[in-house]
């Protein structure tokens, strides 16, 4: 299964990759990608990139765009408009609330293991209610370990340590396991 992924940052794709490895075997899928380095470029180029990914042999498409301060319905509509006419076997648009780091705030054990904490950190019950999950992560890690959290370095490691059952408490993540299950059982 060759999955095309369009995301804002490289480390978003790395997180998605690690989580996908927990849903299906690593040797059953591969990613081809485009990274926007920002939401503006992603929105501008989304249609062209989707077309290119199809041409490169991708059968399925994932578009990953943080909600940030946007209106979710409007954002989803814009992104759907870019990709719906490109002939993928299936596509899914994931809009993490408010940032993808909310998914990484779901599993306390993952943070404990990656940062070698002594105790389990106390995490918000609803990570998606946190307005700035990246900063929240930074503060939790700094407080517990005195270490610096850098999203481009650590997100991938945290995702690799996460349990899917915990990440599923983030509603914005839930469409993805369903998408993968649906299209790998075909």
């Amino acid at each position: 299964m060759r999955i095309g992924v369009i995301a804002e940052e490289s480390n978003d794709i790395e997180v998605l990759y690690e989580l996908t490895c927990k849903l299906i075997k690593e040797n059953t899928f591969s990613f081809r990608k485009f990274v926007g380095h920002g939401s503006g470029m992603l929105r501008r180029k989304c249609k062209a990139w989707a077309k290119n990914l199809l041409q490169r042999g991708c059968t399925h498409l994932v578009v990953l765009h943080d909600l940030d301060e946007n209106n979710e319905n409007e954002l989803r509509l814009k992104l759907t408009d870019c990709v719906q006419n490109v002939n993928f076997e299936g596509y899914v648009i994931l809009i993490p609330v408010h940032e993808i780091e909310a998914w990484l705030l779901a599993d306390a054990k993952a943070l404990k293991d990656v940062f070698h904490m002594i105790n389990l950190p106390k995490l918000p019950r609803n990570p998606e209610a946190v307005k700035r999950p990246k900063e929240k992560l930074r503060d939790i890690i700094r407080k517990a370990t005195k270490k610096y959290y850098v999203n481009t370095i650590h997100n991938k490691k945290i995702a690799a340590a996460c349990r899917i059952s915990k990440v599923k408490i983030c509603k914005s993540f839930c469409p993805y396991p369903k998408f993968i299950t649906l299209h790998t059982s075909e």
Partner: peptide
């Protein structure tokens, strides 16, 4: 290249 398409 910058937007990741040359990487596998």
């Amino acid at each position: 290249w910058k937007h990741g398409a040359l990487e596998s």
